[in-house]
Design a protein around this nucleic acid. Structure first.
Lengths: 131, 131
DNA sequence: CTATCTGTTATATATATAGTATAACAGATA
DNA sequence: TATCTGTTATACTATATATATAACAGATAG
């Protein structure tokens, strides 16, 4: 796997896992139907606990990004992926608010801020282009 | 004050305070030299503890957004405000990453994502325009 | 000088979250 | 029958958050 954890980070491990799995889906490294490692094997690979992996899987399953087949474990959603719900938009706006405020106070203009957001978005998608 | 807290939120109270004070600085409701309420009075107004307010002030002071005069308490930075440091850019990119990834997976295009970021930025600045 | 206001520091406590550690269960598979 | 899956339950530790009291030093107004 391409997962890289920072155990010293203030960001919870399961959150880092969720984000990196979403990045994998965003850039095409993880496609619908692709199997994910079992909670035990991934935990062993990363040197963390089984439950930490399971929590990340639970979050992604709860939101509809993953499916669990009693048969072959966890796979990327094969049906329709979750869309741009108003709930997601509200969450996005809420999180952007604090960042935009600090950026503005630091003198970053609207265009600079938007460009930076675009750059981050593009970088994520481009990570999968060379694979 | 214009502070509104959500005590049920998963976002720590002191973080909400930091963000809303930054918003005030971003939209002009708080200008350089403006005094902030004392930790005790603001805590009483908001119905929270003195130390929670103090922690928010400490964070903003540490980053250079606030000054503390032994004389008249806490005021908005009168010197030069913190700029767009590489440290800030890295923090911004790190936080944007997870949001951009989920947005992409949900089918939000780069332009839509950038537009939403712009909209949030603009909204913050416009809040202070009608005051 | 005294009383009162600042921020600041020090303790102590309660609660929630994060992470780990073991164990066990039911379903599926070879 | 083993062995794999996710899942659930329990227990424990560590850390972050928030509160509660108390005290200190500096500044200020009476």
């Amino acid at each position: 796997m391409f997962i890289e954890l920072d155990l010293q980070s203030e960001v919870p491990i399961y959150t880092q896992l969720v984000e990196q799995l979403l990045e994998g889906m965003a850039n095409g490294q993880l496609k619908p139907g692709d199997p994910l490692p079992s909670v035990r094997s991934l935990a062993a690979d990363l040197g963390i606990n089984l439950h930490t992996v399971n929590k990340a899987y639970q979050v992604l399953k709860q939101d509809g990004f993953l499916q669990v087949h009693r048969k072959q474990g966890v796979v990327i959603q094969t049906g329709e992926m979750p869309g741009i719900t108003t709930e997601f938009q509200e969450k996005l706006a809420r999180q952007l608010k604090g960042m935009a405020a600090e950026a503005a106070v630091r003198g970053m203009q609207e265009i600079e801020f938007a460009d930076m957001c675009s750059a981050v978005y593009r970088q994520i998608k481009e990570q999968g282009a060379d694979r």
